[in-house]
Amino acid sequence: GRALMAFLGVVVGLLVMQDALGIGLAWALGQERLLGLLGASVTLSGGHGTGAAWAKVFAERHGLASATEIAIACATFGLILGGLIGGPVARFLITRYQLAPNLETEVATSTGFEEPNTVRPITAEAVIETVALIAVCLAVGSAFASLLNGTAFELPAFVCVLFVGVVLRNGLAVRGWYRVFEDAVSVLGNVSLGLFLAIALMSLRLGDLASLALPLFVILVVQAIAMAAYAIFVTFRVMGRNYDAAVLAAGHCGFGLGATPTAIANMQAITGQFGPSHLAFLVVPMVGAFFIDIANAIVIKLFLLLPLYG
């Protein structure tokens, strides 16, 4: 509804601000503009997966050296900072404006994100079904990405795979044919991410980043400060200046610098102390797990069209 659209607009605004700020800082520090783009929404709002995907594009098509190493370093830095600043930002807003949840509008039931210790058994059959669905997404999404190669609508393959997954999951649910088992998807996703990070980190040549350490540090620190300010002065105000808005601001810090799990952890910490916010736990996972990747890809493509990288 309206809250989702408003939050998506706020998120898109942050993507544009991060990329403009990153490119501007890279220029001011005498570095390649693409370095600033990697130290912006590509890795901060995008995370490790998006960063690695775009790093390959930057290296192959734009000649940026050590693009993968830069992407992984920026994404890791952002993941840590996103978890560190989300809680303090929400606490400041809650104490500054004396906010509290409206318990009359909160329903009695909680979502799985709000009660992470609630466990459902995962069977071998559920895992096999989930792997099959993922395989379909990979096959169809990769084919779709190949069709877009070389066109104005070209996107990293993972975005097409993600889109196919959303269509498949919702299409099956609407037709009543099959309901995806979220816990199985979560387990397989965490295992895949862990293996990906292990492989990526083993192949990194961190020594190549020695000359870029100071510029990267400056860019990332400024981005973290900008994220906190954006959450306080934009996210909180646009989303209604209430308790839900404060929790949303904490979540925005989590995936604006890191990833959706970081956003969930931030919100769990806040709601565990101050009270529930079902709106935040509905909106943040939807925007942080899907819409942001599509919006981020479009914003990055638009910035790459600018004549700034010669």
Rank of each mutant, 00 (worst) to 15 (best):
A152S: 12
G288R: 01
A90K: 00
A143E: 14
D208C: 06
I264L: 08
G24R: 04
N242R: 08
L302F: 14
V174Y: 13
P261K: 00
A200G: 09
L282V: 14
A52Q: 07
L204E: 09
L64C: 07
A100C: 12
L214Y: 13
N190W: 07
L25P: 01
G258S: 01
D19W: 01
G112L: 05
L37Q: 01
A157N: 13
L38I: 01
G194I: 03
S110L: 13
F77M: 05
L29Q: 03
A75Q: 04
R241G: 12
F233P: 01
R2S: 15
L103A: 06
I72C: 05
C74S: 06
G150A: 09
H252R: 06
T118N: 10
T118H: 14
L257A: 09
L37C: 05
F274M: 09
L84F: 15
T130F: 11
E106A: 05
G49N: 04
A263M: 04
P261N: 08
V57R: 10
F233Q: 08
I298E: 13
G112I: 01
Q223P: 14
A259W: 08
L79G: 08
E32I: 05
L162Y: 04
G78P: 09
G24W: 02
A289F: 12
W54D: 10
I225N: 11
V221C: 02
V238S: 04
T109W: 11
G240A: 08
V166D: 06
S66A: 14
F303K: 00
G9T: 07
L257W: 06
V164R: 05
H62V: 10
I270P: 06
A184R: 04
V218D: 10
Y309H: 15
I232W: 11
P121C: 14
A55S: 10
E104Y: 09
H48G: 02
N117M: 14
L147F: 15
F236S: 03
E154G: 02
A249R: 01
G47C: 00
T235D: 02
L302M: 13
L29W: 08
T151F: 13
P101E: 00
L103Y: 07
S211A: 12
N149Y: 14
I219Q: 00
S192V: 12
P215A: 03
L248S: 04
E32V: 07
